[in-house]
Design a protein around this nucleic acid. Structure first.
Length: 907
DNA sequence: GAGAGCGTAA
DNA sequence: TAGACTACGCTCTC
């Protein structure tokens, strides 16, 4: 295999793509990069290379130059006249010729033919990430003597941690790393994690102390922990997680084991202004030193989580190793296991400081103010709810049914939540189909107070209700549903209300019933606020729910803790730290969710379509690449192929026009936003129970608000830009499928991409989340058997051209239709209501734009072509997003931050 | 039960 | 850096 590379961004891309290949095929090949040869390509960890800043593990001493140094070197001195250089230059020239020949879009992807899948050709892209490479050469870090038995590399400067996931003690290390750091990428053999202020905040919040983190990290690391990383850990853990907001006997306390920190906070005028100086005295507490209240600390293992088999409540950085078979590694594992566990136990039991906690009381109506101020002072408050001592709020008589048991990872995530006998607020991340709902329900059954549960759609509201009834002993009258068409209240003192975000967050005028219901929600104190699909909470409207609802604990659940904007970090302070995150592949391997075979199918554009594509503007382009007859055929073929295998198939087409066209052409039912509720249910029922109907077409409705039956195959024809979340959510639709475990892979995920179009750019971006979770996408460029398939649609040229005309006409008739609408609107709307006028004006404007003829201007076309081309070629030129400052944090504070993190913050 | 209005995703 | 765009959801009103 040869890779021709002229600049570093190509190199990075090539290596990323290579890694997909390796995971899929595990070829025994030689990977030759510049002058360094790695003996076995599979041993070159993707992440190590990708992140440019450490040397390859295998040859730290043998080879003094890292590949990145080398590539930087090449970049700087083109006068180097070694033969290797010449070879490379030849490749560059060849690549440049390709660019001249107009093959640039193709160059956006690495290509490999069917005959030789390992021949890769990378073609130069613009020099967008120059300077990123070659900065880090960590040869100076001394390897520990016994480094081979330790699984971690820690990079100075970026605080990235590389884990050898094939190490015998990887499982323990993973548990620990998940607790202290943010997973960046977790493919099969090498994982990459990143320490961030938030991740350390989360670590502290589940009970780890600075000492634990540094000790364990040091024990697992092949190199000594770099000084700047130590400093950063110290700095973050020194203030984070030390202060807690506790609601006790319906009084709010700011609590800490460190009295000096409370004193420091009280020096702040805002906080001290919110303080209630103790009036009554109580047997339960005493006026301790410094005028602070003193309580005895909660004992860690008094509480058992509902549904849990064994009562083991330690902060869980050790895992059960009983099912490991490898004899030789067992001893080592045990040693680490004991050490890790010991580490944490020591702190929980022997530290005398832990026996007492100090607190001061704040006025209930000032809690938000104090919380905000604490964030600003860099002492974010954790929220904890001592629910067992809450005598004011009535208990809810509810339990898990005896037959309900929870899985180990669910238990683990809950043990983070209830680790110290109280309920902590935070976020639990589990893949779709892994039982998020049950985690939420178990948490509810543990707290046993009134529960408010919020979902994104009315459909999932009813699902939650049904799940509550299924898993717990709760009575029907104790659950109330609050949606636009059903406004119930529960009877009795305590109960469950399930509603939607938009229902509760609504700021517009409410109907009388809805207002009464909202009053009901506001008056109450909720033991637990369950937030399903918590990644939507940072949205402007939705984020208000967390402050308007008086809840003692907030538990956020999601499968995809990503957003394409930068608001995801806000969750740390809106809800709480991320308590647990499961790895998708890991759960698949353990059999909890389905194993999925992912493939990206490249569909050639027919010449006619491509010609039009190059001419058209954005909107029509989309339609052209979606309606590409080749794609049509491939879709048809895949459906046919999988139907014959007995699969249930869901086809996603985002564009409604295309959705209808596809479904009607292939004579299959489809559901989109306009489909009535009854029709939806009818189609879904048929799909589920009728063996003759094995395929349905869905638009974006399928992403969130449909209770989809089990499917085993998923074909994505078109999608919304580069949404990682959408891709992941769609994949999640087939993770429940487990009944075909006898076959090697039991679920299939195809993404159809029209070659050489914008779609390829988006597709790569979309896959990123899943790739980070360890999924690999196989690229299929040809379906050989397809040509023999007789019923193939659009087989002859004429029908393809007809289709093209229909598509082009569809566009025009669409805009004509819009125009007519506008006219009709103008004629009919005679009463001059203000809002109506506004709306009309807006609509009018858009119509003018699309009819103005700008679409057809030659120069526009040309410009557009250029810009989209550079988009295509410049994969990953966007700068990465670093963590964002917590809300309300002043710039002065960020300057005090450790430089290692400041760098990220200032991005 | 349709449609206006607004919000969300990106 | 904001913006381009489309589809869809929910709620309310009539």
């Amino acid at each position: 295999m040869q890779i021709g590379i002229s600049d570093q961004s190509s190199l990075m891309y090539a290596l990323q793509k290579l890694e997909f290949l390796f995971r899929f095929e595990q070829p025994k090949i030689k990977l030759k990069i510049n002058s360094n040869t790695y003996k076995d390509a599979t041993s070159v960890p993707n992440n190590v290379i990708k992140k440019e800043n450490i040397t390859t593990p295998s040859d730290t001493n043998a080879n003094k130059t890292s590949i990145f140094q080398h590539s930087k070197h090449n970049n700087e001195s083109n006068t180097d006249t070694s033969t290797k250089q010449n070879d490379e230059e030849k490749l560059i020239v060849a690549a440049q010729n390709d660019v001249k020949a107009g093959l640039v879009p193709r160059a956006a992807r690495l290509e490999f033919s069917n005959t030789d899948p390992y021949e890769l050709v990378a073609i130069p892209k613009r020099d967008a990430v120059s300077g990123k490479f070659g900065k880090g050469d960590f040869n100076f870090l001394k390897l520990k003597k016994d480094h081979s038995s330790r699984p971690l590399w820690i990079c100075p400067g970026s605080a990235h941690i590389i884990l050898e996931a094939f190490s015998p003690i990887a499982d323990q290390a993973i548990d620990f790393l998940i607790a202290i750091s943010e997973p960046v990428s977790r493919p099969l053999n090498v994982h990459e994690y990143k320490l961030t202020p938030y991740s350390l905040y989360a670590a502290v919040s589940v009970g780890l102390e600075t000492k634990d983190i540094l000790d364990v990290l040091n024990r697992l690391s092949k190199v000594p922990i770099p000084d700047d990383v130590v400093a950063a850990i110290n700095q973050c853990t020194v203030s984070y997680g030390k202060v807690k907001q506790v609601l006790k006997h319906n009084r709010y306390f700011v609590e800490s084991t460190h009295p000096d920190i409370l004193q420091r906070l009280l020096k702040d005028p805002i906080i001290s202004g919110c303080r209630i100086v103790d009036s009554s005295s109580d047997t339960n507490k005493s006026q301790g030193k410094n005028g602070l209240l003193t309580f005895s600390a909660p004992k860690p293992d008094e509480l058992s989580i509902a549904g849990k088999q064994v009562n083991q409540m330690n902060v869980d950085i050790s895992v059960d190793i009983s099912n490991q078979n490898d004899e030789s590694s067992n001893k080592l594992e045990n040693q680490f296991n004991v050490d890790l566990q010991q580490q944490v136990n020591d702190d929980n039991i022997d530290d005398p400081e832990e026996d007492d906690v100090y607190a001061f009381e704040v006025a209930p109506n000032q809690v938000e103010t104090v919380k905000k101020r604490c964030n600003e002072l860099d002492y974010p408050m954790l929220e904890e709810y001592d629910f067992r001592n809450d005598t004011i709020n009535p208990n809810l008589n509810m339990d898990l049914k005896p037959i309900t048991t929870i899985r180990p990872y669910q238990e683990k995530s809950l043990s983070k939540m209830f680790g110290n006998g109280r309920a902590r607020s935070g976020i639990i991340v589990l893949p779709c189909g892994a039982g998020k709902t049950l985690v939420g329900i178990t948490a509810a059954c543990t707290i046993k107070k009134s529960i408010l549960c919020l979902c994104t759609s009315a459909v999932s509201v009813y699902q939650w209700k049904q799940q509550f009834l299924q898993w717990t002993t709760i009575k029907e009258h104790q659950i109330a549903v609050f949606t636009s068409d059903q406004k119930e209240k529960f009877s009795g003192d305590a109960g469950i209300v399930i509603s939607t975000f938009s229902m509760v967050a609504n700021t517009r005028k409410r109907s009388y019933e809805a207002q009464k219901m909202m009053d009901f929600l506001h008056q109450r104190e909720w033991g637990l606020l369950l937030l399903d699909e918590v990644h939507v909470v940072p949205a402007n409207m939705f984020r208000r729910v967390v402050t308007t609802i008086a809840a003692h604990t907030k538990l956020g659940l999601t499968a995809t803790l990503v957003r394409e904007d930068d608001k995801i970090d806000d969750l740390n302070f809106l809800i709480g730290p991320k308590l647990y995150e499961a790895n998708w592949i890991d759960l698949a391997i353990k059999g909890h969710i389905a194993t999925v075979q992912c493939a990206e199918v490249w569909c050639d554009m027919t010449p006619e379509f491509y010609r039009e594509y190059l001419k058209e503007q954005n909107r029509k382009r989309l339609l052209l690449y979606v309606m590409n007859p080749r794609k049509f055929q491939i879709c048809q073929y895949l459906i046919w192929y999988h139907q014959n295998r007995g699969d249930k198939i869901i086809v996603f087409v985002d564009n409604v026009y295309a959705l209808k066209a596809y479904a009607q052409k292939l004579k299959l039912p489809y559901i989109y936003g306009g489909t009535s509720q009854q029709e939806r249910l009818r189609i879904l029922h048929q799909f589920q129970h009728n063996p003759m109907l094995n395929t349905i077409f869905l638009s974006k409705v399928g992403d969130t608000s449909i209770d989809l039956p089990e499917a085993t195959c998923l074909i994505q024809v078109s999608s919304h830009y580069g949404s990682r979340r959408q891709e992941a959510q769609r994949l999640g639709r087939i993770l429940r499928a487990k009944r075909r475990q006898d076959i090697g892979f039991n679920a299939y995920f195809y993404s159809l991409v029209s070659k050489d179009t914008m779609e390829m750019f988006y597709s790569t971006k979309r896959q990123q989340f899943l790739v980070d979770q360890g999924y690999s996408f196989k690229v299929i460029t040809q379906l050989e058997a397809m040509e023999d398939f007789e019923e193939l649609v659009f087989k002859d040229k004429q029908s393809q051209i007809d289709l093209l005309h229909t598509v082009l006409l569809a566009n025009e008739s669409d805009s004509r239709l819009e125009n007519e609408d506008t006219n009709a609107d103008e004629n009919s709307t005679t009463t001059g209501e203000q809002s109506g006028q506004k709306a009309r004006a807006k609509k009018h404007a858009s119509t003018i734009q699309s009819l103005s003829g700008a679409d057809n201007m030659a120069y526009m076309e040309y410009n557009n072509g250029i810009s989209s081309r550079s988009k295509l070629t410049g994969i990953d030129v966007r700068k990465g997003r670093g963590p964002i400052l917590p809300t309300g944090k002043g710039t002065s504070n960020s300057e005090e931050r450790h430089p290692l993190f400041k760098k990220h913050f200032n991005k």
